[in-house]
Design a protein around this nucleic acid. Structure first.
Lengths: 195, 195, 195, 195
DNA sequence: GATGAATGAGTATTCATTCAT
DNA sequence: AATGAATGAATACTCATTCAT
């Protein structure tokens, strides 16, 4: 008789939104953004196509929402790395990065698949750009603390290394010896003040 | 209206084919494979849409042809690295890789943009997969020669590093200090037999 | 939770129904029937979409209800014209028509916007058709009373004139010198028995 | 063998374009702009939906093209009215208007159906507005020539009359005694310098 | 009486591909 | 060898309408 209570509605909305995001991520990661149809997402989520537009203004907005959600996760994770004792922060951040990677493979797969199109995918470009800069700057700070000679250059190298490993991992998660590779990298940056 | 001679015809065909490949690469690199239309390629090349199908069976086949052409280039380049004296081959290959990168930025941009979709872009998957394996195997061999302890693991790390740098470079060729980064990497692998 | 009394309920229903009609007319007049969404009406009225269907079976029925309501208004207005003394009825009707027009601009705007689609907008056709015939017949009667030679033809002309002026007015109410135009027309039909 | 000659292509294009315009007008006039689908136009014209976009950028552009084409017709027709001897120009223009109406009923039906939406149909608004002003100004000039006291006001009345008759005619061309009505109007404006 | 989440059929538009010339 | 008119299947998105609460 009486309309659904505010709380019940909010719960329904939260659940539907999450469901859509989850299945959109799954499809985007598997087939790439452009080759994923709204139809496929709806089917995968077991809902109608129209419902998606009840929660997201466009396919583009859906992609953006996925990024925002994941970026928040990244921020939090990196903040925890900051709490590590000086001299161990570089290593803490490297480990944090790979933990993120394992925990959210599909997002990173999507992210790498979309990266080169950033300037072309409206409004996404900025996010990725800023995120890249943040990482580089953070890394630079840690490397400087840890006594590296050329922290700026070194940050570029380390970031590239992390990025490269992450991509290779994501291309074949089952077959990639991520643990070993991470340990190899960590062992290299653990003994501080090289050069 | 005497029919064109065989030779003239062949020359025309070669020139048209090359022209199409060139402009397809340009467009694919700039906008991504999916977002590039046959129309755009034809317009860029100054020809009709139909003509493209006279040389390539499909958009997909056009992409494949670009890869084949570039892969050949890669092979040749890497073969020259093999001629370096033992103990310097790793470094030679690293340098060769980055020379290739600079010489053919657009191809690498396209390549990285398409990589995550490999399984989904028909028939392309194999090519990329095989190419990845080839590089890893070659690297492993050189690193072993050069006295590294765990050549297999080390090859994964080095390949990831190269790949990561290449991607970062390709995202912003003008702003990336490629020379310095390469020298940093090279200096690291030049003093052989680390461990 | 004692049930609402019958009377209170009826009052609520009447108020809601009127509210919906009011805002539907506003939206239909501003954007046209086809380009007005149920969503827009609901938003304008500050109610939910669903509620509209509690009062009207469909968008179409809502349009029909607006017409019924306004037609009644027209009937009443024209009946008052009938009370004018013979020889002044034509003028009385002309004045009544333009008073209606000014009083209910939005309805006439909607009406003119929908007129050409009448046969296509289910069940509306009849209403408009009948209404047109009624006016023509009434006008014919008055003109005959007033001694015009060819009352049938003259009625067509006068009706067209009224209709044309009304439309031009409704297209730009602020800039149209309605008073003057009406006086010009009235002065023409005031001196009865032309020919 | 050799591609179609320029001339043949131009002929094909002209024929296809005309065909599309013709069937679009037919559909728009019958069902209104908003309720006419591209699909329906294509089906009516016996072509694919895609082909329409080969000639017109959008449904909107198609509507605009119809207006441009017909407006040109109107211009020419009115210019011929200008050649009438002074004192008979008003009547010549009235006759010209109704000839246009009969010759192109469907266009006027579409035009009246869309008029109230003008501000909402992108880019069309201006055209109709300007056209209205042109007519009013021309009429005013002729009426002044013909010695009417208040040509500005009189022009408004005459324009409304023409417009009203045109609409009533277009609503039921078969049953409307257009000839008689026109003659009635003409007879009124023929004896110049009333007042 | 009232809500708003959900549906599904429909719409304009795009684009790889074909084919007569 | 080359053209470009034409196709048709697919796509993102809209919106009137339903219904459980």
């Amino acid at each position: 008789m009486s309309p659904r209570s505010r709380q019940v509605n909010d719960a329904i909305r939260a659940e539907s939104r999450a469901r859509i995001l989850e299945h959109a991520l799954e499809q985007f990661a598997a087939n790439g953004y452009d080759r994923t149809t709204i139809r496929a997402i709806a089917k995968s989520a077991g809902i109608s196509q129209g419902l998606i537009y009840n929660y997201f203004a466009s396919k583009d907005a859906l992609l953006r929402a996925i990024f925002e959600q994941s970026m928040q996760d990244v921020q939090e994770s990196f903040q925890r790395a900051e709490e590590a004792p000086p001299g161990q922060r570089t290593v803490a951040l490297v480990r944090a990065a790979f933990e993120l990677l394992e925990r959210n493979q599909r997002f990173w797969r999507l992210s790498y698949g979309v990266r080169m199109q950033a300037p072309v995918l409206s409004d996404l470009g900025d996010g990725l750009q800023r995120w890249t800069e943040t990482i580089t700057r953070t890394l630079r700070g840690y490397l400087q603390e840890d006594g590296f000679d050329e922290p700026k250059l070194e940050a570029r190298v380390l970031f590239a290394l992390i990025d490269g490993v992450a991509q290779h991992y994501v291309l074949d998660p089952a077959g990639y010896p991520l643990e070993e590779v991470v340990e190899r990298i960590v062992s290299w940056y653990a003994t501080s003040g090289h050069s």
